[in-house]
Design a protein around this nucleic acid. Structure first.
Length: 438
DNA sequence: TCTGGGGTCCTAGGACCC
DNA sequence: TCTGGGGTCCTAGGACCC
């Protein structure tokens, strides 16, 4: 038996903790460059604001409907998330933090009235942190996810489901007929693992609802869709195929990519951006005590805009796996210079660290023919220097200390062109947020 | 003017091996 | 009729998640 605890409209709810005046307003939180909506309050959803809606398309709702837009503050959300997860962990013996706003909790061995227990947990998180949540429970993770969807929907759109399923919903506590009714009212697209493409194909086959999918043959669907879909069907049927992952595994790839606020038409700002991306990726790499054996860098124009399109990437193998910022930045910039072509308006760039391995493994093979200074041992900055760099940046804030190669620009960064104010009255500098940054 | 930033897993097909 | 039969490794692309 599993529970899934999920913060409602999480980023919006985080903002509302500090600005209760937003409580009844339609609110959206915007992505990095204020490009598109990545979180919406119920009121914003009711206005028809879609997930990922570009800001310039919904901006008019500020005037016409009182929509409030906020620039995202991920540092704040991370902090609130940690507090929420710590409390949620009390629901059962094991917890998997699945995303910034969701965690699965195993309820194995937990006795008593599970629904009451979940309701208590819900009020506790609301009271202690100020985040409204919904909790779904079921025999498998897929069923817990689905129950969570039902709990949220029953609250937000009364009428579709029985009202007593709002906020806390356990599919395991429903009678067979009741379960069938509820699943028949649930679109198959809401099932965890059914995305846009598979949804369309299932609909073509006449599988419309979660109930239809549950009633299907797992092996028949495997033949058409593969083993992932087979697992989904079995999980819907109550056969657990997906385990709880209590200890998050190290990443197998680490990326840092950004869209630019304005098109970039020359090499210089790209070098600066790519240097910073490589540097941030290197920090993440060291945080999980890994080394990278390959650096990928890409640049691309915007598919949404007219004009000549260009999208290119290159992967550079490193002589020895490393977590050294200087080496990784140098590789990324070298790659950029190899793929850069003038005459295009670039909209996005990124760096990915690939071929990751544990820190202990320092020996690499020596690719032949790679003899630039990049690949000499002497070029490696001492590890202690990287540790000092990370500690200083952690204590005093990102960017306090950076490598000189990242460029000396004091001008505004091209990948961070967010407005300080969107809906003027509401946006505050995040330094003002009353949350300890430690 | 203006369209996010991360990740994972699976599969098919090609290269290569004996 | 039938064009060997397995293996492994790598990569690209598709699909999904939040």
């Amino acid at each position: 038996m599993y529970a899934l605890i999920d913060g409602n409209n999480f980023y919006v709810s985080c903002e509302r903790i500090f600005r209760p005046s937003l409580n009844a307003c339609p609110v959206v939180v915007l992505s990095n460059n204020d490009g598109c909506a990545i979180a919406r309050s119920n009121e914003a959803k009711a206005l028809g604001v879609a997930m990922g809606a570009p800001w310039f398309k919904i901006q008019h709702l500020q005037e016409s409907a009182g929509l409030v837009a906020l620039s995202a503050n991920f540092t704040l959300y991370g902090d609130i998330s940690q507090r929420m997860m710590t409390i949620a962990a009390g629901l059962g013996p094991q917890q998997e933090v699945y995303s910034i706003d969701e965690s699965f909790v195993s309820l194995t061995g937990v006795r008593g009235d599970l629904i009451k227990r979940a309701q208590t947990m819900r009020s506790r998180i609301l009271q202690w942190i100020g985040i409204p949540t919904c909790i779904g429970m079921g025999e498998t993770k897929t069923l817990a996810k689905l129950a969570n969807h039902i709990a949220k929907t029953a609250e937000r759109k009364p009428g579709l489901y029985p009202t007593e399923l709002a906020q806390v919903c356990s599919l395991s506590h429903l009678s067979a007929e009741r379960l069938k009714e509820v699943l028949q009212r649930t679109d198959v697209a809401e099932v965890w693992g059914v995305g846009r493409r598979i949804n369309a194909q299932l609909k073509d086959m006449g599988i419309e609802t979660a109930w239809d999918l549950r009633a299907s043959s797992a092996s028949a669907l495997r033949a058409r869709f593969g083993v992932v879909m087979e697992r989904t069907v079995k999980e819907l049927q109550g056969v657990a195929c997906i385990d709880l992952e209590e200890w998050p595994a190290n990443k197998k790839e680490i990326a840092c990519t950004r869209s630019f606020g304005q098109a970039v038409v020359s090499l210089e700002p790209l070098i600066e951006a790519v240097s910073e991306f490589a540097s941030r990726a290197a920090e993440k790499l060291r945080r999980q005590r890994s080394l990278s054996g390959q650096v990928l860098v890409f640049i691309r124009t915007s598919p949404f805009r007219a004009g000549p399109q260009y999208s290119q990437s290159i992967t550079l193998p490193l002589l020895r796996p490393t977590a050294d910022t200087a080496t990784l930045v140098q590789a990324a910039v070298m790659g950029l210079q190899l793929i850069y072509q003038g005459g295009f308006a670039f909209a996005k760039a990124g760096v990915m660290l690939l071929d990751l391995r544990d820190e202990g493994f320092e020996q690499g093979e020596l690719p032949l023919g790679l003899e630039t200074s990049l690949y000499t041992r002497e070029n490696q900055t001492p590890k202690a220097l990287m540790q000092a760099l990370d500690q200083i940046n952690q204590r005093y804030g990102r960017g306090t200390l950076a490598l000189a190669s990242s460029g000396s620009s004091t001008k505004k960064k091209i990948w961070s062109m967010r407005q300080e104010r969107l809906t003027p009255r509401y946006t505050t500098a995040w330094a003002d947020m009353p949350v300890a940054r430690a």
